[in-house]
Design a protein around this nucleic acid. Structure first.
Lengths: 248, 248
DNA sequence: CGACTAACGCGTAAGGTATACGCAGTTCCA
DNA sequence: TGGAACTGCGTATACCTTACGCGTTAGTCG
């Protein structure tokens, strides 16, 4: 009976932390949470998040939909675990990195993990991070800010901001590219199509700043996403640095 | 025939820009896009995004589900229009504001609009902004950066970053609070519950930075979301300012 | 003025979804 | 050797989106 330590925590997440009752009685469970989560990840990787249904995941395991509910409270619970599985482990910290290098390493690792499983950015967040790997990622970023003299609340805020930036970036780039590739042969043509459409729909006098961007050709070619990501990341880190300077 | 100007653009969005064929023949349409979008917004405001189904929206209009498909290509199309309707119009720019004051005004206006309709942050983005109000918000933020000497591509990047920050902030705060309020009477108790759960699940030696945050009581009380928002916003703006200083 | 035809409203139905409930079978403990 | 607890899972319910096609309406043209 783990009433106290698992109250309010979804069954799947509690089990992922290893704090479930060992289930001494009854038949041996035919499945494990790891296998279920892995199967879900496989389906999402192969056919997208929309293909992830309880039926499909169960079929992949040679089981049936309702069996999964013995291990997981709801589909949302399964999705949370899938994200946690897909995010995987954190890149190891260099021993002598400063906070800035550490956060760059962290952000790049996070972006790599998210890009390897783009569907993770589409799973709705319905609770603060509780699953093991999510908490580990959080911890690692906090560690980077260890010796900065910032308040704990500030560190937490900054890490949430950074994590949101990564999520948002991967989601936008991934989904927009996917959407464009449906309608155009090459990314170049796709962006050109967006640019043209925007130009046709909008009036240059009512939207001068937008047309300045269009005329500069910003949307005419698909930028390498890494550059775009690095640019925004450096701005955020500069902002953090400015805060630290103001404190010193 | 507007083949050229509406190719690839969802019907609903094209109509929202007013570039559809006037439909000279046939019976008068019994509905309008505005009424449909407004009905969808009303349902989402009242009962949440999950309650928004074609059936429900149609019922609200005294119509039937399939009728809506005469005006909208798909449910996603309707959702995009609903978001565009809910975001509404941009707060008017002060005549002599500098870029920083302008972006603060913009971000606060955006956050206010999003908080008034929290479900907007849960609508998946599947294409770059095309709907009228979305483009207008984009334009307004670009205008704030008009005289900064930054490259057009940089301006666009920064605006996307800022918009992502606002979306992410509203989504996290809104959904997490909503989730907690299901299980606890007061926000204070809810946060306390999260803090306790995290403390029970994690080990202080394996997660030292996290426990430093927990021990500092960061998660013990629900911060006023405005402070948290302003803090992150100022960091981003500082980062932009640093870029501009480096250019000068 | 009558016929044509494009557009509208919408009923029907297909094929998908999550999951509540309950039953049969299995395993351990007293 | 019961009895109890647990697992697997079939069935059923109540939704969802949307493809298809039919009847009807209302402008336009011969």
């Amino acid at each position: 009976m783990d009433d106290e330590s698992t109250s309010g925590v979804p069954a799947g997440i509690a089990a992922a932390w290893g704090v479930r009752a060992p289930a001494t009685k009854g038949p041996k469970p035919g499945l494990t949470l790891d296998r279920i989560a892995a199967a879900g990840v496989a389906v999402a990787d192969a056919d997208g998040l929309a293909a992830v249904s309880m039926n499909r995941v169960a079929k992949e395991l040679g089981s049936s939909a309702m069996s999964l509910y013995r291990y997981v409270d709801s589909k949302q619970d399964l999705l949370t675990l899938m994200v946690d599985t897909a995010l995987g482990t954190i890149p190891t910290a260099a021993p002598d990195e400063d906070w800035r290098a550490g956060l760059v390493r962290w952000a790049r690792g996070f972006v790599d993990a998210a890009r390897a499983h783009p569907w993770t950015t589409r799973v709705a967040i319905t609770a603060p991070p509780l699953a093991p790997n999510s908490v580990a990622w959080f911890e690692d970023a906090l560690c980077c800010l260890r010796d900065t003299g910032l308040a704990e609340a500030e560190k937490a805020s900054l890490v949430m901001m950074l994590s949101g930036y990564v999520r948002n970036h991967v989601m936008l780039m991934g989904e927009v590219q996917a959407h464009f590739l449906e309608a155009a042969a090459t990314p170049h043509e796709a962006m050109r199509g967006y640019s043209d459409t925007l130009r046709r729909l909008t009036d240059a006098e009512r939207f001068p700043a937008l047309h300045a961007v269009l005329d500069a050709g910003v949307f005419d070619h698909a930028d390498p996403p890494d550059e775009e990501f690095a640019f925004g990341l450096q701005r955020i880190l500069d902002g953090i640095q400015a805060l630290m300077r103001a404190r010193a």
